[in-house]
Simulated assay, not measured.
Amino acid sequence: MQVTGTFSVKSFVPTEVVPDPAIATAVPVGVVLMEKQFEGEVAGRAATLFTSAFDQAAGVGTYVAMESFEGALAGRAGAFNFAHSATTSGTDRSNEYFIIVPGSGTGELAGITGTGSITVDADGTHHIGFEYELP
């Protein structure tokens, strides 16, 4: 089954993490806690742990995110985890990865498996899509 929706970031809280040992690279690594709100066939909210190595000035970097989603897909309610990552060289999005974490579904989404995608319009609108199966 395929569903789509849009989302917005409701909170964005940078979190300091100091690795041991600290290793300096040309691109700083950061961690952010986010809350997202979803609308459309994907409706609900997510708590997101977002890690990136990103050069703000050049707009170049890579992120890795783990999300805990609570809401509904096409009207079926529950919760599950999904992970995604992508790289940008400043104006593009490449090397994308997106997976629903097996065994993480609850409620009417118990047993969910699949993949998904995120796209961003020129005006900044964020879209999410899931291609999933349920038992």
Rank of each mutant, 00 (worst) to 15 (best):
Q2C: 02
Q2M: 03
T4M: 10
T4C: 08
G5D: 05
T6P: 03
F7H: 10
S8R: 15
V9A: 02
V9P: 01
K10H: 08
S11G: 01
S11H: 03
V13M: 07
V17H: 09
V17Q: 10
V18A: 13
P19F: 06
P21F: 06
P21R: 05
A22Q: 13
A22Y: 14
A24D: 11
A24Y: 15
T25S: 02
T25E: 00
A26H: 09
A26N: 13
P28L: 11
G30S: 08
G30E: 02
V31A: 05
V31C: 04
V32W: 04
V32E: 03
V32K: 05
L33H: 12
L33G: 08
L33F: 13
K36Q: 03
Q37V: 03
F38L: 04
G40D: 00
V42A: 00
V42Q: 00
V42L: 00
A43L: 14
A43Y: 08
A47F: 06
L49E: 05
F50G: 00
F50P: 00
T51P: 08
T51W: 12
S52I: 05
S52R: 12
S52L: 10
A53G: 12
Q56I: 11
A57E: 15
G61K: 01
T62G: 04
V64S: 14
A65C: 07
M66T: 15
E67V: 10
E70A: 15
E70K: 14
G71A: 11
G71C: 11
G71Q: 09
A72I: 01
L73K: 06
G75N: 03
R76S: 11
R76Y: 10
A77E: 13
G78S: 09
F80V: 02
N81A: 12
N81M: 13
A83C: 15
A83L: 13
S85Y: 07
S89L: 14
G90N: 06
T91H: 14
D92E: 07
R93G: 09
S94R: 13
F98C: 02
F98R: 02
I100K: 09
I100L: 14
V101T: 09
G103Y: 00
T106H: 07
G107A: 09
E108V: 08
L109I: 10
A110Q: 13
G111T: 03
G111Q: 04
G114A: 04
G116D: 13
I118K: 08
I118Q: 08
T119K: 07
V120I: 15
V120T: 15
D121H: 06
A122I: 02
T125C: 12
T125A: 11
H126E: 15
H127Y: 13
I128T: 01
G129D: 02
F130L: 06
E131F: 14
Y132T: 00
Y132K: 00
L134Q: 03
P135D: 07
